[in-house]
């Protein structure tokens, strides 16, 4: 799997964990205010995709901003997320909001978990700015 930061390897569970995103310097193009963005690279790097609302299946969406990965598919391919909506935003492993999920609060960001290579749906309330 690509470009994800591996912080440590748990022997029995051989998978990398996510690390919090701290460096804003890596932020190629900032996620617009009041939006939820998925990034192609870890650490909010590379091209990003702005979620248009709740997305039950990310199939068909592409990273659009300039930067590495621009034009690539978002589904199963996003490495980090930034939530600038006021609402908690949740990314699900599976389409139709199934499987395990990861929630980002207002103005919080992070890398998606390494094993979580099927980020397939995004949910936040449409009334959330």
């Amino acid at each position: 799997m690509k470009k994800r930061i591996t912080s440590f390897v748990a022997a029995a569970f051989g998978a990398a964990l996510l690390v919090p995103v701290t460096a804003t310097a890596a932020e190629a193009v900032a996620c617009p205010s009041s939006e939820f963005c998925l990034y192609y690279n870890s650490g909010l790097g590379g091209s990003h995709f702005v979620a248009p609302g709740d997305v039950p299946d990310l199939a068909g969406y592409r990273f659009t901003s300039s930067g590495a990965g621009q034009g690539q598919a978002v589904k199963n391919n996003a490495a980090s997320a930034h939530n600038k909506t006021h609402c908690n935003a949740t990314v699900y492993f599976n389409s139709n909001y199934g499987g395990p999920s990861d929630t980002f609060g207002y103005m919080n960001s992070g890398n998606l978990v390494n094993t979580y290579n099927e980020n397939a749906s995004v949910r936040f309330a449409t009334f959330c700015g």
Partner: peptide, 29 residues
Amino acid sequence: VGEADREIAGKDQPGPGELARGANFQTFD
């Protein structure tokens, strides 16, 4: 927001840390 989050979570972000977040996906997998 940064000030509030530091008051609540110190140098971390508010919410679960990387250990629990990672484990949530790993054990599923």
